[in-house]
Design a protein around this nucleic acid. Structure first.
Lengths: 192, 192
DNA sequence: TGATTTTCTTAATCATGATTAAGTTTTTTT
DNA sequence: AAAAAAACTTAATCATGATTAAGAAAATCA
């Protein structure tokens, strides 16, 4: 389990035996069943979760009570609420397991210590954040430049494995339209 | 000019005299008139610009030839195309001055060197990226959860100074609607 | 296995904001 | 100061995708 994390980190920076041992002492291992909550609105988010196996999602509650998908995360992704970190305010997010999960987490209250001991990790997270930020801006571009229908086709082509993994209503919300509209698109696709 | 950058960095990490001198040798100073391009589609983006004074914007060209605003940046913000860095591919962005600007830039081909000499800067950029990423996710939330009209009012309340600083057609595009619709909103506001 | 909850589908109606096109105002250039 | 370009406004028409409501299918539970 821990090896998955180390392997991922080593794609970005070197990490020797000694450093691995230090890192291990700072992380927490969790196995969690489907549909459990890691974080709920109003709580403070102190963990940054690395997905060894499974799938997480984050969402917010809209005024009308609907859930608005914010992010999905699968193997080798990190998920947390950076906004809550930044602002030192209770989170507006729900973070929930979509599948049974194996997770590794780092507590943000000890991470400064950890970075001091292993400066390479500071670099690792800088690179991860750079990647995440770029991806987030790209998603914004899709929102602006593509119609809902085009967004679905684009997602379909680029992340086909996701389609089977997550319920369609979550996907619809993630792409910014209603489940009813997604049904319509699929009906149209079956025609042709 | 350089002092502005140092002051900003020191909000996040400490930076002694010696480090300041090293940093200075890695940056480039530029004064640029309004409406000039720092980057155009197809070029490789190697600079990360810090705005000492003025305003930048980035946009993409849509299929129909319209410009889609991606980001604004004003004093004490950094702007670049991280996506182009990541992918080592030519940029799809245009980066342009909206006002006369005073800029400081770092070249990404020398920044690894710089971070090795001043590890604090690695930390500084991690924190900046964390902030930027959180802001970008927040903007996505506004796209999902607010109507175009609500987005305008929200922006109006939270960034009133921006409204006077940038042309309305840029703002409309940034918020994801047409300039015609923005006129409509303003007409409605003048009524009541 | 049957019962219940969750997820997905279909179809009619409706509202928002895009598009088009013309005209006005403001800013920039010469 | 005049001419040209850039930015903004108004109004009519139109299309996309939301909403509503009902029912079907699939997954989960007891």
């Amino acid at each position: 389990m821990f090896e998955n994390l180390v392997r991922h980190i080593q794609k970005f920076v070197a990490l020797n035996e000694e450093e691995q041992i230090i890192l291990r002492s700072y992380v927490k291992f969790e196995k969690i069943k489907k549909k459990q909550y890691l974080l709920q609105e109003g709580q403070f988010c102190h963990a940054n979760w690395f997905i060894v196996k499974g799938c997480l999602r984050s969402y917010t509650l809209k005024e009308n009570g609907n859930k608005q998908m914010v992010q999905f995360a699968i193997e080798n992704w990190w998920l947390t609420d950076y906004f809550s970190f930044e602002q030192k305010k209770p989170s507006k997010l729900f973070i929930q397991t979509v599948e049974d999960c194996e997770l590794i987490s780092i507590d943000d209250r000890t991470s400064e210590d950890l970075f001091a001991k292993i400066p390479q990790l500071e670099r690792y997270f800088r690179l991860i954040l750079q990647k995440s930020y770029a991806a987030s801006l790209m998603r914004l571009q899709y929102m602006f430049n593509l119609s809902p229908e085009e967004r679905f086709h684009h997602f379909n082509e680029n992340f086909p494995s996701f389609i089977q993994r997550v319920p369609q209503y979550m996907l619809a919300s993630y792409l910014g339209f209603t489940p009813e509209f997604l049904s319509k698109i699929r009906a149209k696709m079956a025609d042709s």
